[in-house]
Design a binder for these strands. Structure first.
Length: 532
DNA sequence: CTAGGGTTAG
């Protein structure tokens, strides 16, 4: 953590004195008026700097309002800087200020620092209320610290740390749902239905969303096994429908979010008829579709390759001024690449700045992936180097797309060079990146290099994952090195890495293709979920 | 008149 003392000077040096938003205390209520006019972080910082220097000091509420504004702009680090500066300058702070700072830390994935502010809060004799506990609960779930979140929830209830409310229980239900523990989430919901704090729309939405996403998982698996008929309705989906019915029984109205969840889920599952049916219901019940509703429909059509329909939704969104965000662009660009219309995708990309929208790292990642897939790897490389000169930083997905694109376009050595450069530059690396290179080696006939990289993984501090093994086993099977493949398969299980459907498919295909009725085959068949 | 929970893109 940076030292606290110099924060005010940092603020002062960052913002300078160029702002035209200078406090003017000639009239009563000037401060709130001016704060409400601020619409960017620089002005907020400049205004904060002036407030700090005013005598008498503005009220703590004024400071809090400014911090609220900065948080709405998602500039959490700036809000934290303001808080530290206030502490250093001896400006009074209250529970509101501290709860916001705790939230800032939580939103940045630093719930640990949130706890330290909580400690500071106790130290100055303040007591956290239910809101602060809710914030911390959310922060724990956000960092997948489910155990600790559940423990805190228990403490809240059994040690009466505070009186839990709808938000407390909603946060817990949402957190459990998001890690796939819908069973437990529904348990909490049942308890709630019988308790004093009744569930509301938000709580039902959280579970319905989780159930819909489970349905997607079922569908994906079904597709993988090529066993499903269209319109399959797995158990989880029935559960979602039951909840939907139940909501109405309890007199809890579905809202835009509820409809969006269903539309999004149907769209992603390729069930556009159902998505449109829900859309119609939504309209009939007087709910207004929003940006997300349209994005979901657009994505649904895109995924189905119905780019004309997707474009129609996009144009309709533009017409009503809905396209204030890059996400619709990203979805449509992805859609054009999907139907191999890379020129139109590029055209959209180049047009974004004219609309005052700037491509994000996600846009670039979509673009690079599309260009590689359509065989235009020279342009991809060029755009990538241009991007490196901008302020956008490649993330995990971007790196993977680049490495994979280079490998699949026959530039395995360039991919390796890129990975080595990433190692040198201290990029955050992941075993998935090595898997891509290993696959590239296997597919380009350099099995030895694949083996070398595989065995060097542990030296670099990475454990092979199921994909690493699958890749290597596949490479060995391709060369009908079945004994070595089987050895690796056994080693995989011995190392506690569980084989998945893909592993079995690879093994079976390899052994069958090799026309070797190995003694291992019967046992493989028996254990394969495909044939079981 | 200031603090907390739900649905979008790679």
């Amino acid at each position: 953590m940076p030292p606290v003392g110099s924060a005010a000077r940092i603020v002062a040096s960052v913002c300078g004195k160029s702002s035209n938003l200078t406090p003017n205390n000639s009239q009563l209520g000037w401060l709130k008026n001016d704060i409400s006019k601020i619409n960017n972080v620089d002005d907020a910082l400049a205004f904060f700097n002036h407030m700090v220097r005013m005598r008498p000091l503005p009220d703590v509420i004024d400071f809090n309002q400014l911090v609220t504004l900065v948080m709405k702009m998602k500039s959490f680090s700036v809000a934290i800087l303001m808080y530290k500066s206030m502490c250093a300058e001896g400006i009074p702070i209250d529970v509101y200020t501290m709860s916001m700072v705790i939230n800032c830390y939580c939103r940045e994935g630093r719930v640990d620092l949130g706890f330290s502010v909580l400690g500071a809060l106790f130290k100055v004799g303040l007591m956290p209320g239910v809101i602060i506990f809710n914030t911390i609960l959310k922060g724990l779930f956000r960092e997948h610290r489910v155990r600790e979140a559940q423990e805190l929830f228990s403490k809240i209830i059994y040690e009466k740390l505070c009186e839990p409310d709808q938000v407390t229980i909603g946060t817990v239900i949402d957190g459990l749902s998001k890690v796939g523990n819908t069973r437990k989430a529904i348990e909490v919901l049942r308890a709630m239905e019988n308790g004093d704090t009744k569930p509301n729309t938000i709580i039902y939405n959280a579970i319905i969303d989780a159930l819909c996403k489970d349905k997607m998982m079922d569908q994906a698996l079904g597709l993988l096994f090529e066993m499903i008929k269209k319109g399959i309705a797995p158990s989880k989906w029935q559960e979602a429908k039951k909840l939907w019915t139940k909501m109405r029984y309890f007199g809890i109205a579905p809202d835009v979010v509820t409809y969006n969840i269903f539309i999004d889920s149907f769209s992603k599952g390729g069930l556009m008829k159902d998505a449109n049916a829900v859309f119609a219901v939504m309209i009939r019940r007087g709910e207004t579709p929003d940006i997300l509703t349209h994005c979901s429909l657009m994505e649904g059509y895109s995924l189905q390759g119905q780019i004309v329909k997707a474009r129609r939704v996009f144009d309709a969104m533009v017409a009503v001024g809905f396209v204030t965000d890059i996400i619709p662009y990203n979805i449509l660009i992805h859609g054009y690449f999907k139907v191999r219309k890379s020129e139109e995708a590029m055209r959209l990309f180049l047009n974004m700045p004219c609309k005052g929208l700037h491509p994000s790292i996600v846009t670039y990642t979509i673009l690079l992936q599309g260009l590689f897939q359509s065989g235009r790897c020279d342009i991809a490389k060029q755009i990538f180097s241009e991007m490196l000169l901008s302020t956008l930083k490649p993330n995990f997905y971007t790196w993977c797309v680049m490495l994979d694109g280079l490998c699949k376009s026959g530039h395995v050595d360039d991919a390796l060079l890129l990975l080595l450069k990433m190692e040198r530059d201290g990029e955050v690396l992941h075993v998935a990146m090595y898997n891509i290179i290993i696959d590239g080696f296997c597919k380009s006939g350099s099995l030895d290099r694949a083996r070398d990289m595989f065995s060097s993984l542990s030296l670099k501090g990475f454990d092979p994952d199921v994909t690493t093994y699958n890749t290597m086993i596949d490479g060995l099977c391709m060369k009908t090195l079945l004994v070595e493949a089987k050895t690796l398969f056994d080693q995989m299980e011995a190392n506690g890495c569980l084989a998945d459907e893909i592993t079995y498919n690879i093994m079976l295909r390899g052994f069958l293709k090799g026309e070797i009725r190995s003694q291992n085959l019967p046992s493989l068949c028996f254990r394969s979920p495909v044939l079981a």
